[in-house]
Write a protein that binds this DNA or RNA. Sequence first.
DNA 1: GTGAAAGCGCTAACAT
DNA 2: ATGTTAGCGCTTTCAC
Lengths: 357, 357
Amino acid sequence: MKKRPTIGDVARQSGLSASTVSLALNQSGYVSEKTRAKVMRVVKELGYHPTRAARGLASSTSGNLGFIVSEDHFAQAEQFYTRVFLGTELEARLHDYYVLLTVIGRHFTKGNSIPRFLLERNVDGVIIAGSVNDKIIEYIDGLGLPIILVDYQFKRKPCSAVLIDNRNGTRSAVSHLIQIGHTRIGFIGGDLRHPSIAERYGTYKATLEEHGLVPDPSWIAADEKYLSFKSGCTAAEKVLSAPSRPEALFAANDSMAIGSLHCAKRQGLRIPEDLAIVGFDDLEVSSHVEPRLTSVRVHKEEMGRLAVRRLVDILRSKLTTEVTAHVRADLIVRESTAGKLGEYAPLTVEAEDEVAW
Amino acid sequence: MKKRPTIGDVARQSGLSASTVSLALNQSGYVSEKTRAKVMRVVKELGYHPTRAARGLASSTSGNLGFIVSEDHFAQAEQFYTRVFLGTELEARLHDYYVLLTVIGRHFTKGNSIPRFLLERNVDGVIIAGSVNDKIIEYIDGLGLPIILVDYQFKRKPCSAVLIDNRNGTRSAVSHLIQIGHTRIGFIGGDLRHPSIAERYGTYKATLEEHGLVPDPSWIAADEKYLSFKSGCTAAEKVLSAPSRPEALFAANDSMAIGSLHCAKRQGLRIPEDLAIVGFDDLEVSSHVEPRLTSVRVHKEEMGRLAVRRLVDILRSKLTTEVTAHVRADLIVRESTAGKLGEYAPLTVEAEDEVAW
DNA sequence: GTGAAAGCGCTAACAT
DNA sequence: ATGTTAGCGCTTTCAC
């Protein structure tokens, strides 16, 4: 078993010193083109590749990015966070980073709940997806590691974030319901501590108000603890049993929307004739339920990619300005509100073939 | 900014040498309980945590596992591989490993197509999911890294693998169709180079034969290049246009099954009355299509977990025996074959509430 | 522009 | 059972 070549071998073979080889390899300028070319030749000849651990030790750099998501979020919206994570993974690859994923629990006080990659200095920066205990943010910040928040906001300190344009997304969803003739529009939601959900709820009310509509309190179920399928069922049951039930529902996310949809169907309601439903997130499954769910599309992978791009920018050039990006959230009209397609001539109707498979 | 403590600090504080501290920390035996206790106390006191890079350099160990999946597979069966990956991730965490994910292209000759984590010696072992170019397996083997295959087999050399019990899975699916009265049973598939698919196809034919049934060749569409939703549509169109069309379909996976389902519905066929359909994999979406799809459940996370467990066993104890594990594949009967539930009194009927949300 | 020297923080023989 | 001694392979001042 022949040993793999080290930087020393490259130095010897090219008649240079290890430090020069290192400089040449790391694009550090200060190396003549001629030298660099020679180094590259020998590197290729020998099939040399630096060892990550050695680089890490010498440069206090790991080549990894940490991805943190709370247990709760991940368990209840796996489809969502998985795709964000995939986005980070794909983008990180382009920049020669790997992503270490970790799921954290509610409690942060216990020492063992700190992600190992932080304790071992095994990441150069961190992406946090969804809401978390703010203490972890402060802890990471204290470590001096750059942080990018995805779909979450930190109030106490400016922090770069990639957010969803919940305002416009919600506005287009609710406006759509109004436009196709509904006035009795309910809300299905929960976990209002999450900024995104709170924003969707707020914009739902604001949009109705702008149109001179006032929702009956019994049409609103916003106190579910989770945003899950099951919570959607529960919430819908509550709302649909109201003496004067709503004729349309805006759900805080697709899981709840689908839960509501199932519940409504079980009660014998026809969707969208008896009840129109709009969700938020546009999960893959949403275009497969029957009727197919109208939803606000969130570009999940893109959010992950943006987060990585931002993080890498910071890492590579030591930028420190906090930047907040808002990704679009576009309404995708499907059968759960459109009825027979075309009937209401909605602005955006997804062709059946567009289903992303 | 105070520097983090090193092993030297722990040594000093506890009046021991760095090597003793190292031994104590790594459970290496050979350390008195008394000493270990003292070390632990100081470690806690100082909040010491070893730096991954330093450990790596000194011990030629990375603390990472590599996860490789082909671009093609990942793009076409993301739902499947994502869950396997999640399984590895969750299990790896229990054993203090992180998983580095990489997607590889078809071609392997080009040097730059070798996963960077291999070149940089940044993983201690590798999990390969789905079929890949065998050269990569040989390359990794040449590196001396342990490999666990998931849903794939390597012929030239014994290699540990976590496989799906396709035989029993397929047998139960096809038997179910026969049991509920069908005799004209078609097959929807493709990419027969994949061992799992080939096995499902083979067992499909064998099972029919055992029951004295002979499928008309026009009922079989097994030459699609991909196993995608779209391929499922195409294949179903072919098969359903046969002069004497089949009354039931067994699809090689759920994506194709759902493609077939859409296609059949578009042609005005009622499912399951006019055409019964069974898939394989039991993706999350399968329990949300209408009618809900009967499928063979594959425990994807469990496959990932098993692979990691095996890999860690090898890493920790230097085991070298190749082991092949087969994970169960159980039929889940839903509406795409059961019709009104209970009509055929199938063995396993999933309650609606069982949907994993 | 290039080289020499000094670590980075840890593990692993080997000695005691 | 514990300490001594060497590195692991690379980066990074700092001279020249």
